[in-house]
């Protein structure tokens, strides 16, 4: 009797375990399945529209063929500007937290706030820049778009800089101090050099992050059908063009939207892989 009961219990437990394992397996297949589906459709649809014209012609009016040149260039320029604005602030802030503020109350508060900003909805950042730059200036501009992107870059760079600098062994710092090297010089000449790969990784991740950001650009840089790099006026960008084209009924536009989406995804994934390989080599 007891043995039978024990047997039944054992079988029940075995069954639960098997079901759980099967579910875990299924869950993983589920997750991977969506990845394959999304990337597969993206590649299939995007490659269909891929041609030299995409990189040499500007966005067309509805019903005509064209390319994405102005959108790509606009995105590149705004991204570069955003990195130029955001990286110094991010690196310096991360430096403070890793070097000067290890036991500082200010640093821990900033760390906390930074992590929140990292995950904050980007549309709110767009609203913020609209209130602060667009409305006072009276018009949309590429500058406003770049600043909005810079606000997204800063938390990413702060985080990676701080992490990477913390990894630099203190023995290096102590050696520098022992020969009379002032703190600032030690940081700039030794710590930065040691953490260089990591900081570059952070910048690459930041670029990857803002490459796909649409919401902050919607009401800062707006959009432009023509090739324009006049940063004091609306500037086209790839994500906003995709947004406009995808929601239209025109076939050529929808095809270009898929191609643009493929370009962004390839860029983002390539940057992530490069960033990952940089840090992997280090460790």
């Amino acid at each position: 009797m007891a043995i039978a009961a024990r047997n039944a219990l054992y079988l029940r437990r075995r069954l639960r375990n098997t079901i759980a394992r099967a579910l875990a397996f299924a869950a993983t297949a589920f997750g991977l399945g969506w990845l394959v589906l999304i990337l597969g459709v993206l590649i299939f649809e995007g490659i269909g529209g891929l041609s030299l014209a995409v990189f040499t012609e500007n966005t067309p009016p509805p019903g005509a063929a064209g390319g994405l040149l102005n959108a790509i260039m606009g995105s590149i320029v705004m991204t570069v500007l955003a990195i130029v604005i955001g990286t110094p602030i991010g690196v310096l802030a991360g430096t403070y937290m890793a070097e000067y503020g290890r036991h500082d109350k200010l640093a821990s508060v900033v760390r906390f706030i930074n992590d929140i900003l990292l995950s904050a909805p980007s549309i709110v950042i767009g609203l913020f820049i609209y209130e602060v730059l667009v409305a006072p200036m009276g018009h949309f501009s590429g500058y406003a778009g770049s600043v909005a992107l810079a606000v997204i870059v800063i938390p990413v760079v702060v985080r990676t800089t701080e992490d990477m600098l913390t990894l630099v062994p203190d023995t290096l710092r102590e050696a520098a101090a022992s020969i009379g090297l002032p703190r600032a010089h030690m940081i700039v000449r030794i710590a930065y050099r040691a953490a260089r790969a990591g900081i570059v990784t952070g910048i690459l991740l930041a670029i990857a992050r803002i490459s796909g950001e649409t919401a902050p650009l919607l009401f800062t840089a707006l959009n432009n059908q023509f090739f324009s790099l006049d940063m004091n006026a609306p500037v086209p960008s790839l994500p906003v063009v995709i947004f406009q084209f995808a929601l239209s009924p025109y076939e050529e536009w929808q095809k270009l939207a898929w191609t643009g989406a493929l370009l962004i995804t390839v860029t983002v994934l390539a940057l992530s892989i490069i960033a990952r390989s940089l840090t992997a080599r280090k460790s």
Binding site: T214, P239, I264
Partner: peptide, 9 residues
């Protein structure tokens, strides 16, 4: 890593 606009379309 896939940007959200791709999820959208």
């Amino acid at each position: 890593g896939i940007p959200s606009i791709i999820y959208g379309i």
